[in-house]
Nucleic acid binder design. Structure first.
Lengths: 337, 337
DNA sequence: GAGATTTGGTAATACGTTTTACCAATTATT
DNA sequence: AATAATTGGTAAAACGTATTACCAAATCTC
């Protein structure tokens, strides 16, 4: 490994000068020819600063930890891409943890936080994060940003435009002529579920449509959970002609349940989901979705994690709008035809 | 931050003892009561070793860099999950880089490699990796493992049981009665394409089926490329009753092309693909696939990256078999019905 | 030409670990 | 009782960087 003093020796200066040139220290006064000599040596000896030493000295590692609930989920993947991009732009690297492989990786994460190995932490994990991780981060004063989570006084919070997205989805069905619209929500205890539900209710109310409590069913954001949730919804409301699903993976499961009852999509039941995924268009019924600014969410998250000046609190992604992507899983209801 | 000497002070010993107790140094002889005193102080003061200092001293960071071609691709996601799990088991953390966000993240990666910030590197990126990353890793003697790539003398190599998987897929079609079977390969210059092609040819030959050169078309592993590749295949071979796709995402695109020609799957054309994904069962035609041991691939990759004793060379995942997952995109050909 | 300022740097220290070499006091051996 | 071996540790150096305080020589000011 080439070190600062190797360069210093070659260039005939002290290592302090080399360090200050490499780090572009504005307060350093040095002759142009010395600077060139150093830069040349840096180039020739292929110098790269030792990250551990730099971290030790400056207490800044350039690493940001990101905890994802399930790496495999394409919805989260898009968030990761956004975070990845922003990290690169800001000269940071992303440390990845999968919350579903909980125990070992959580322990490791706690170690890393405690060992001042990271500059910031981003958590996308609906509830899957052990308390001790958060507690440790708070104690260690690691800037933490929670994605779509509940308020934690110690952390930053970023939300998606959930209410708007849900309203768009619901209005789309209403405009097609539906009146019997079910709501397959995400987990009950998540605040984003609440916001999406508000959007759904708002749209329903604006159209003057009443609804029973049984028209709302909560489930998790995976296919299997969506399937059982949808079964519950259909059992309780046989008259339904449309469903808005608050999560696209749950929607995929819901569609399976609908088909298993020999119902047609969208012939008998229309389905619209929040979050777009690349394969939505290739499903048995190409799925109409409302795309969320997930890339932007990931990007914003690392920006906030990096920027120490921002006061803690909640912010919402507002520079990108949810967008309705119309495909073939929605159509007017039979009675309206 | 709590440091070794904080602990030492509280426990009334030297920091050397604390370090050696924390690291479970077998050569240390210490009285049981001292050990307990130290352990108690560690607990109470909430000590965690400073990673930077440890790295600086021992030149082992506990970090493994993983470069993924496209985080969003579910096929790669499964590899990541395997790697993530193995990393946790071995008390390492995974540093994630997305090759598609190439330039910034590549520069950052080179910096990190050069700065001795990582213990190993895993590259899953069909061609997307800048030369300088590999070169730097080699110069820095960072153990590098290439997934499904071409032989590089400096690196370890891990392959999937490609030939077997492809043979299984092709045999499945042959057993259904197909004789006119197209091959939608992955990229021409990849050795795994070659191996899969060998499997296809082997199955065809074993069944005594001749084929023309035009029955093989190469494309990339994404939906759009699969679509155009399939178009080419169908144009050149109108008599085809089945296609084996070497990549599942390409298969999804291929299906789109087939449908756009008003052909039915599997009525007119059967489709089978290599790699299983969670949504395969929910596609318009639930896709028959051959699942590959991707989790195992990721897992093995970090194990090899960690284990410095293993000689360089190629190894194949052989403790897990490709598995045919039959769904509804394959059936006997029309003429056979 | 004496004092003040600027130019172009340098020396030294701290960051927190790990590890090697060493040592005083106690216990065992003959 | 003298020597040897064991017990239970300690002291100090090194890893490579960033940064503060300092300084000699050159140049400027009047």
């Amino acid at each position: 490994m080439t070190t600062l003093s190797d360069i210093a020796k070659v260039a005939g200066v002290s290592s302090a000068v080399v360090s200050r040139i490499v780090n572009d220290d504005k307060t350093l006064r040095v002759s142009e020819e010395t600077r060139q000599r150093v830069l040349k040596a840096v180039e020739e000896l292929d110098y790269a600063p030792n990250i551990a030493a730099r971290t030790l000295r400056s207490a800044k590692s350039g690493l940001i930890a990101m905890v994802v609930h399930d790496v495999t989920n394409p919805v989260y993947a898009e968030i990761m891409r956004g975070a990845q991009t922003a990290a690169g732009d800001n000269n940071r690297a992303l440390l990845l943890f999968d919350a579903s492989a909980t125990e070992q990786s959580a322990s490791r994460l706690v170690d890393i936080i405690g060992g001042s190995g990271i500059d910031g932490m981003i958590i996308q994990s609906a509830g899957g994060i052990p308390e001790r991780v958060l507690a440790r981060a708070a104690r260690q004063k690691v800037p933490t940003v929670l994605l779509q989570a509940d308020l934690d006084a110690e952390a930053h919070l970023i939300c998606l435009p959930d209410e708007g997205a849900s309203e768009i989805a619901t209005n789309h069905l209403i405009e097609l002529g539906h009146r019997q619209i079910g709501c397959l929500s995400t987990a009950r205890d998540m605040t984003f579920s609440r916001r999406r539900l508000d959007g759904w209710k708002k749209a329903m109310a604006a159209a003057g449509i009443d609804h029973g409590a049984g028209q709302i069913v909560y489930c998790s954001s995976d296919m299997e959970s969506g399937r059982t949730g949808c079964a519950q919804l259909l059992d309780a409301n046989p008259e339904l002609t449309a469903v808005v699903c608050f999560n696209v993976m749950a929607a995929v499961g819901a569609m399976k349940e609908i088909w298993s009852r020999n119902l047609d999509i969208p012939g008998d039941i229309s389905v619209v989901a929040i979050h777009d995924v690349s394969f939505a268009e290739f499903l048995k019924a190409p799925l109409t979705t409302v795309a969320m600014p997930l890339f932007e969410l990931g990007k914003r998250a690392v920006e906030i994690a990096i920027d120490g000046t921002r006061p803690k609190g909640t912010s919402t992604i507002d520079n990108a709008e949810p967008e309705l992507i119309m495909r073939a899983s929605t159509a007017g209801p039979k009675t309206a035809r």
